[in-house]
């Protein structure tokens, strides 16, 4: 079903959502930095930054999350699991790449044998309102990575900015629950043409130039390639590109306790930290940046596709934008792919 929303009613619309749901959307704690957060006031919502630093995965798989609390009484203990979400949620203003990434994380967290209840509970109780990207950034390459700037998959509702209004599509049953919202109006045919136009422009801008297709096979042959000897050199081994990546899902589990009370907490972790794989004996199976960078790229473009049939990258460009040394994953892919290796214009830097 297709509807629209006048922008002058935008804040009232958000307020109406907040009556029944906890609302999560991008906010800017300082100019130039954007994160997804639970909204207290509709005016906080800030959609100016196309890709917020912290991706929407933070809403389903928070950077730091208490799994369960416990109390010890003598030799006995009592445990209280913390997965339950009391109120239904709405995630508003996530872009197609972030939403696609949530379904990627879902592939690993919701399994046949074991299911991550913390993720699933949040996923189930969240209605996702996606927002199309009229002006993709030069670092965006979603179309090459299996998505596109207006991909509806994964969204329950989808918004497209038409200037004065938002064009609104209800896509799923969950989305249809909002059908009766008093601020939605009928669309007119002009809007549909405008949507087509915007889509066309954005698709053209994003292009398909990054060789993600076929990369899995290519990398099969490259496990011990000298490529890895050089490609990692400038990486300083921080966690920017993995923490901020919407598809990265690695975590650490730690206990925090005082006296007889405590909690088991999980925190995002990164395969680029040496300590991530360091064993108690002192042995580290990935001793240098070479193995760690290989893990990051191979996991995204070879191991994950082997297990789940899709690369674990949605082309959001965060790892390019925020890397302190400009490690550009697109260039790594170009270089690794046969194309670049043949007509090598510039050395990998």
């Amino acid at each position: 079903m297709k509807l629209k929303l006048d922008k002058k009613n935008f804040e009232d619309f958000l307020k109406s959502l907040m009556e029944e749901y906890d609302l999560y959307a991008p906010v800017q704690p300082v100019e130039g930095v954007s994160v997804f957060k639970k909204i207290e006031q509709p005016s906080e919502v800030n959609l100016t930054q196309l890709v917020p630093q912290k991706p929407a995965k933070d809403i389903f798989f928070p950077q730091s999350e208490v799994m369960f609390c416990y109390e010890m009484a003598g030799k006995q203990s009592r445990m209280n699991s913390m997965e339950e979400i009391k109120r239904e949620r709405i995630l508003f203003g996530a872009r197609p790449c972030d939403i696609e990434a949530i379904s990627i994380i879902e592939k690993i967290f919701v399994g046949e044998e074991y299911t991550d209840v913390y993720f699933l509970e949040k996923r189930r109780k969240t209605t996702i309102i996606g927002l199309g990207c009229n002006h993709p950034l030069s670092t965006c390459f979603c179309s090459s990575a299996g998505g596109d700037p207006f991909l509806r998959a994964g969204s329950d509702l989808f918004f497209i900015d038409l200037g004065e209004t938002y064009f609104v599509e209800l896509l799923t049953e969950k989305g249809a629950a909002l059908r009766k919202n008093r601020f939605f109006k009928e669309v007119d045919p002009n809007d549909l043409t405008l949507v087509k136009e915007l889509e066309g422009k954005a698709f053209e801008k994003v292009g398909y130039s990054i060789p993600v297709e076929g990369i899995e096979k290519r990398l099969d042959l490259m496990t011990e390639s000298s490529f890895w000897d050089r490609v990692h050199e400038k990486c300083i081994g921080c966690a920017v590109c993995t923490y901020l990546c919407p598809t990265c899902h690695c975590f650490d589990m730690v206990d925090e306790a005082l006296n007889n009370k405590g909690q088991r907490v999980r925190n995002w972790d990164s395969c680029l930290f040496p300590i991530y794989s360091l064993e108690t004996s002192g042995h580290n199976p990935r001793p240098t940046g070479r193995e760690r960078t290989r893990q990051r790229l191979m996991h995204k473009f070879n191991y994950f596709p082997k297990n789940f049939g899709r690369v674990a990258c949605v082309g959001c460009g965060r790892c390019i934008l925020y890397c302190p040394v400009q490690f550009d994953i697109r260039e790594a892919l170009l270089y690794a792919s046969a194309k670049r290796a043949k007509g090598l214009k510039r050395k990998f830097r």
């Binding site: 050199e233 400038k234 040394v325 400009q326 490690f327 550009d328 697109r330 260039e331 510039r346 830097r349």
Partner: peptide
């Protein structure tokens, strides 16, 4: 120089020709 404006990237040069970068 590399892919983003307003930035440079660290480079590791081992051959005299590489100095051109």
């Amino acid at each position: 120089d590399w892919t983003l404006p307003l930035r440079t990237t660290p480079i590791f040069i081992r051959t005299p020709e590489g100095a051109e970068h």
